[in-house]
Computed example of a mutant assay.
Amino acid sequence: MTDELLIKFLLNETSEEEGITVQAWLEADSSNQAYFGQFEKIWKAGKKLAVLSTVNEQQAWLKFKERTSKRTTGSPEAIIRPLKQSLSWLKIAAILILIGGIWMTYNIFGPERYKDVIAENKVLTEQLPDGSELTLNKNSKISYVNNFKRHRHVKLSKGDVFFNVAHDKTRPFVIEINQVSVTVVGTSFNIKRLNGQTEVIVETGIVRVELNGQKIELHKGEKVLIGTAATVLLKEKNTDQLYNYYRSNLFIANNTPIQKVADVMNEAYGSQISISDPSLGAETISTTFKVDAGLEGNLKVIMETMGVKITRNENKILLSRLK
């Protein structure tokens, strides 16, 4: 598809055959519709400025032809008939180049656009344009700004993501999670956004967390848990490696409450483990489970280690004390 034919289409100067060609091209792919939408905006702006333009028309037309010749076309170039409109082809081409520059500037400096990265049923690794590497747990979604050379901005919508950020002091790496903002220049850390809560755990370097004007710095081995109604940021030591199970393929408990182990297994296996009473859930366990051992294998280890019994009701699993 040529830009000249699109101009004719906008001016209603296409033949019946050419009109059918353009319509078929528009219906073939949504990206074609997006291109045409941008092209039409440039065209309309160009018509308004055409009368006032002092651009060298012959030179502009040569530049326009050079640009369009580089585009890959899916059909032979259309035969161009003289326009019935009062605007000349050279004037139109000159204005298109002028407005095209304005449009390009808008794309660079206007509202940011983001690219989505979604992990559905399996863990996904994604490398960003600056060399930073993300590992997304299942059922996670992030978006990063298209113009990564100017900004390093990421939005975490949901799920569990490990960030290994490339060092760059001149361009801080910023993650937005609802009302929470996380800023680093080069470090590794994990962020979980689940059930309205946000948890940040730092493995290396320094991470700055902000909420409603409050700021705290987290260092290696520190974390912050931000609830839905949180008004204060409180950091604490991270005491286990359970958060890392989707990367290590291990559930590593280190004097960890059994309730937390059950919660993480529910995330990993999509199970519904519950504990009969809070005192049992608060009891701790120190052991390593293999994710590949499966839910049944790991429940057996818990049962033997903790001296509990397991009761099943369809998909629900209840852990309770032996009487």
Rank of each mutant, 00 (worst) to 15 (best):
M1Q: 09
L6V: 02
L6H: 03
I7V: 15
L10W: 03
S15L: 02
G19M: 06
I20C: 04
A24D: 15
A24P: 07
E27M: 12
D29Q: 05
Q33H: 10
A34F: 07
Y35I: 03
G37Y: 13
K41C: 06
I42P: 00
W43K: 00
A45C: 13
K47P: 05
K48T: 13
L49F: 12
L52H: 11
Q58S: 12
L62K: 12
E66D: 11
E66I: 04
T72H: 09
G74H: 08
K84Y: 11
S86V: 10
K91Y: 02
K91N: 14
I92F: 05
I99N: 04
G101S: 08
I102G: 10
M104A: 11
Y106Q: 06
N107G: 07
F109I: 05
P111Q: 04
E112R: 12
Y114V: 06
D116F: 07
V117K: 06
A119N: 02
E120S: 06
E120N: 09
K122Y: 02
T125S: 07
L128I: 05
P129K: 00
P129W: 01
D130W: 04
L134M: 07
T135Y: 08
S143P: 06
S143Y: 04
V145A: 09
V145Q: 08
V145K: 09
R150Q: 14
H153D: 15
V154S: 06
K155V: 15
S157C: 04
K158H: 12
K158I: 13
F162H: 15
V165N: 05
H167D: 09
D168R: 11
Q179H: 11
S181F: 12
S181L: 13
V182A: 06
G186H: 03
R193S: 15
V202L: 06
V202E: 02
E203Y: 14
E203N: 15
I206S: 12
N212E: 12
Q214S: 14
I216K: 06
I216V: 09
A230K: 00
L233W: 00
N244G: 10
Y245C: 04
R247T: 10
N249S: 14
L250C: 11
A253N: 07
N254E: 15
V261D: 08
A262Q: 00
Q272M: 08
I275M: 02
D277W: 08
L280N: 05
L280P: 03
A282Y: 06
A282D: 07
E283D: 14
F289P: 06
K290W: 07
V291Y: 13
D292I: 13
L295M: 05
E296M: 10
N298D: 12
L299F: 03
L299A: 03
E304R: 08
T305N: 07
T311D: 12
T311P: 01
E314S: 13
K316L: 07
L319I: 13
L319F: 08
R321P: 02
K323I: 10
